[in-house]
Design a protein around this nucleic acid. Sequence first.
DNA 1: ACTCTGACTCCAGACGCG
DNA 2: TGAGTCAGAGT
DNA 3: CGCGTCC
Length: 306
Amino acid sequence: MGIKGLTKVIGDRCPNAIKSNEIKNYFGRKVAIDASMSIYQFLIAVRQQDGQQLTTESGETTSHLMGIFYRTIRMVENGIKPCYVFDGKPPKLKSGELAKRLERRKEASKSLEEAEELGETVDIDKFSRRTVKVTSEHNDECKKLLSLMGIPYVEAPCEAEAQCAALARDKKVYAAASEDMDTLTFSTPVLLRHLTFSEARKLPIGEIHLNKVLEGLNFTMEQFVDLCILLGCDYCDSIKGIGPQRAVELIDKHKSLEEIIRTLDPKKYPIPDDWMYNEARQLFLNPEVLDPKDIDVNGFILLYFH
DNA sequence: ACTCTGACTCCAGACGCG
DNA sequence: TGAGTCAGAGT
DNA sequence: CGCGTCC
């Protein structure tokens, strides 16, 4: 998931698009958070010594609830008002990527069985993490928890990242908080990284500003989206032999994917068959989202402040 | 000399006690 | 899944 | 901090 190598491209070419901030600077701000992504991370990370997830007596996983609960409390304590965004139906263009992930989980399940037979605890641990999949039950349980906590959430029609970006663009929230760089490709003006509050946090909060990225690259938003497609996204293939360096050069020189396709030597750099670049581009530029005007990002969270 | 690829590695939360 | 590093092949 | 616990 995400845009391959985009963090590095921005770090190398637009260093002043990234700011490092203290948590204090965010007091009173609202942020949009991709719920499914958070749940996924908690399911992988929240384990006990033997590598098993936390469960109730009847064996139902609670790792995701623990994670969401404590992190959310921590945010509110720091004056940050989160609004969680849940995924809807994935776009058709993503089916290839989703099939790949399913395949990887299948392989991991197989390896997991072998490891269990051999009693290799290290491998059991490793492979069980790779089989993690966020289910609608996980999502529903978290929605229930958030309701009880008075924290607002949104059910996006399609990609959560796109909805987060829409909320930020419409100033319903200050920023989208995500480890996933394609939130930027969905035009969030501000992207927060490492928005976590653990006592032993190792990384400062990184703030990436889209306008500074475009300035630094000297690209329009359309060109930036084309760059992201060349770098490699979830929605279509990229061109073999084109990495971050050449991708930036090509967009800089030719300004659009159409022009690049027209000019590139197909013997050196074959264009993928049935390349759906334009569909992917439209997905980024005009994603299916709820109108932010119809969304209440406050919940009854204001109660926490008095 | 530079760039991309693929294979490989390690890593992934938050709390509180001592 | 991402991010880093490495060897090796291609431009 | 390091390390065990959270369910």
